[in-house]
Design a binder for these strands. Structure first.
Ligand SMILES: [Zn+2]
Length: 349
DNA sequence: AGGTAAACCTACTTGC
DNA sequence: TGCAAGTA
DNA sequence: GTTTACC
């Protein structure tokens, strides 16, 4: 469920809490939820998992790392310990934070609240952070990043204590110098964490294949991109390489707002119509962000706050109920293997 | 190429 | 009440 | 939510 508005809500809350803080300790409680691409010591997943897997977390550089083969946790700590979080950024549903040595003069930008327009999407503003370690996160369906006060009770792999204090499914934690702990939690484990030696590598490996951010894409650009596929508009909008950030909820909502049938061929839409889609996306997503995103079951922001935008959904999960615009019964079908709700009266093919 | 289904998982809801 | 199936 | 396989 985390789509662009939920990820942006997480980004803002996280930025406000952790930018400027220095990472003291990374703990890997579930090795299969993290990767360190390009790290020579962790290229053998079998050895790394075997070393870090069954006996609970192992502290950085501790004597616990039995063999010469390194652990994911050790490698993550080597990259991140002593690094100060300099900014939290997002592109589509991808979240990341850059770091810099904590000794360096402060260049942190707290984009948690206001900054210049579009500071959210960090695609173009890697800048001077390009050369330092960076962390990438994708939340999948049920992932969330929480910020907890404390975490000292979770040392030495006290899984039971951690579970009691923070709930289950905590896979990766970053302990900060002010006592706060960032926790990546994800029951279904469709989400993932990546640690790169440089922000430049993160951008190249994780973001290069994404289309423009759905919050800022222009009508012209969207029209150009939709024009080169024969797929249905819904399938095209869900394709992160065409436009990044839309998922099942906001695609259905957007198509309803713009009165476009989900099966309409993407390339058949006029420039004018496509421009309205881009404008509609900006308006819809901005409004959703203002409400802290949508919580259907388990989504919560870093402080545990649920979103409120689900109350404003016109179609999603409302099949059989009345269309807010024309009062006719909303239809349900399947497009791109996803449950799709729309109004057959408002959204003509 | 594009459509479809399964795979990766847990947890909650539905139906018998 | 319990358990399988369906869904997110 | 994303990736992969198959038609
Ligand atoms: Zn309608």
């Amino acid at each position: 469920m985390p789509e662009l508005p939920e990820v942006e809500t997480v980004r803002r809350a996280l930025a406000g809490q952790v930018v400027g803080r220095t990472i003291r300790q990374v703990r890997v409680h579930r090795p299969d939820t993290i990767d360190l691409p390009g790290n020579p010591t962790t290229t053998n997943p079998t050895a790394a998992n075997a070393a870090a897997g069954l006996n609970g977390p192992i502290v950085a550089g501790s004597a616990c790392s039995s063999t010469g083969s390194d652990t994911l946790q050790g490698a993550a700590n080597r990259l991140l310990c002593g690094q100060r979080i300099s900014g939290v950024v997002r592109h589509g549903k991808q979240l990341a934070w850059w770091t810099e040595p904590s000794g360096a003069p402060t260049t942190t930008h707290k984009t948690g609240k206001t900054k210049r327009k579009n500071s959210a999407s960090g695609y173009g503003e890697l800048g001077k952070h390009a050369g330092w370690p960076a962390v990438g996160v994708h939340l999948g369906m049920t992932g969330c990043l929480r910020v907890f006060d404390g975490g000292r009770g979770c040392e030495r792999g006290r899984a039971d204590r951690m579970r009691a204090e923070w709930g289950g499914h905590t896979h990766i934690t970053w302990e900060l110098d002010d006592g706060l702990t960032i926790a990546f939690q994800d029951p279904r484990r469709f989400g993932h964490v990546w640690v790169f030696a440089t922000g430049e590598q993160l951008r190249a490996h994780r973001w290069a294949g994404l289309g423009p951010d759905a919050l800022t894409i222009t009508g012209e650009e969207l029209h150009r991109r939709l024009g080169r596929t024969r797929r249905a508009i819904k399938a095209a909008l869900l394709d992160q390489s065409l436009v990044a950030g839309l998922g099942n909820i906001y695609t259905d909502e957007l198509l309803h707002v713009c009165r476009v049938h989900p099966r309409a061929p993407a390339a058949s839409l006029s420039v004018r119509r496509t421009k309205r889609l881009a404008d509609g996306a900006r308006t819809l997503l901005a409004e959703a962000i203002e409400h802290g995103g949508s919580t259907l079951r388990d989504y919560a922001d870093p402080l545990g706050q649920p979103g409120a935008f689900q109350a404003h959904h016109a179609v999603y999960a409302r099949h059989g109920q009345a269309c807010p615009r024309c009062q006719s019964k909303l239809s349900v079908t399947r497009v791109a293997s996803r449950t799709t709700t729309y109004c057959s009266h408002c959204q003509r093919k």
